[in-house]
Amino acid sequence: MRGLGWSFFTLFLLYLLLPMLAPVVYSFSRLWLDLLPEGFTLEWYARVLRDPKYLEAASLSLRIALLAVAINILAGVPTAYALYLWSDRMGEGLRRLLQVLPLLVPPLVVGLGFLLAFNRPPLALSGTFWIVVLGHAALGFPFFFRTVYAGLAGIEVRLLMEAAQASGAGLWQRLRHVLLPNLLPAVISGSLVAFAISMGEFEVTSMVAGFGTITLPLLLFQSLREDFRAASAVASVLLYTTLLALVGLSLARRR
């Protein structure tokens, strides 16, 4: 029974991992005709690095992701804190809604929503850099919020803030010396997740972005038809980013 379970688990793991690993293997190989690839090479990465098109897209993606994370920190930490402090029955419902709704709504609908909401003055942002940033921030929000909220619950923040207050600390001192240092690991975790989501986002981006905002995933999709080799290298780079975020995440958790 147990052996059977393990076999199924292994098969399932392979089923999940192999498609993810394929582009990585492909990106390092000169030739892949039979079952196994041949000839290790870094040529495809070199080609991507030499092409300003890719570098621009990568730098754009990076800027968008950092800004989306910044928006999440600025909006998400206070929101989570406020909802945590006032978590009566209504607050609890609102929290669930915030956490779940964005996950249930199909990205296409989110994209369409952003298009409709931001296509007339004074919010005529369609096709600009900022609508992509806002879209990514919104997509990362449920994950960011959930992590920070769990962090708040984990450190008994209400009690700690009261203890600081009874020690003579004003609001600013409480935030600086007690809330922020204790919440930092959760904020870092949430930021890494939001960052990874933004770096790899395709659906919403493809709907709201204009010609001036070709992010790395959009460029990857375009080059699938022209240059499959370079595309696999780009895909691998995106995968590395996610893995890096994952490593950072487990480091932040351990602290």
């Binding site: 009261e162 207050q165 020690s167 600390a169 010396h177 007690v178 204790n182």
Partner: peptide, 28 residues
């Protein structure tokens, strides 16, 4: 509370987990 001449001890200790014993006592 921060303006009142009080000190308080809570049921669940409420020590600051990011500070050492020294840091906690030194905080006020």
């Amino acid at each position: 509370p921060e303006g009142r001449p009080i000190g308080m001890v809570f049921q669940n200790y409420a020590l600051f987990p990011n500070m050492t014993v020294f840091g906690n006592v030194a905080f006020p």
